[in-house]
């Protein structure tokens, strides 16, 4: 069974990097350019079992997305923040809103794969 990871980022470059890294390890990758699109896709695609999400995005930012996901049937899908930000205050807010982890950009493909394995319970 192919389990999908959704990458939410307004930078197409970042989306492509994530896609390349995770596809190489056998994951399907779905892309969304902002929080609102991500929310729609998350509800439309039950295959999505992990979300990697930027913070600063147009229309709906990452923290708002986190807050909104909680009120949907997909609230159990783990969300990991993937961002250049790293202030402890922001990290704390994301954690309080239910994020499962924080990856600070720039990331290595290995870090992404390790995170996906850890949260999806694959080996």
């Amino acid at each position: 069974m192919s389990r999908a990871v959704m990458i939410v980022d307004d930078s197409p470059l970042v989306c492509r990097q994530v896609e390349r890294a995770l596809c190489a390890s056998g994951y399907t990758v779905i892309q969304a350019a902002d929080g609102r699109e991500a929310l729609e896709k998350l509800l439309a695609w039950p295959e999505i079992s992990l979300v990697m999400c930027d913070i600063n995005m147009p229309r709906m930012d990452g923290l708002e997305f986190l807050a909104q996901v909680r009120a949907t049937p997909a609230s159990a899908v783990p969300v990991v923040m993937l961002t250049t930000e790293s202030q402890a205050e922001l990290v704390r807010r994301a954690k309080e809103l239910g994020a499962r982890g924080w990856i600070t950009k720039p990331f290595t493909p290995d870090a992404l794969v390790a995170t996906a394995r850890k949260l999806l319970g694959d080996c």
Binding site: V91, K95, R100, G101, I103, F107, T108, K118
Partner: peptide
């Protein structure tokens, strides 16, 4: 909780 943080 198992919240983690990766630094580049």
């Amino acid at each position: 909780d198992d919240f983690f943080m990766q630094l580049p």
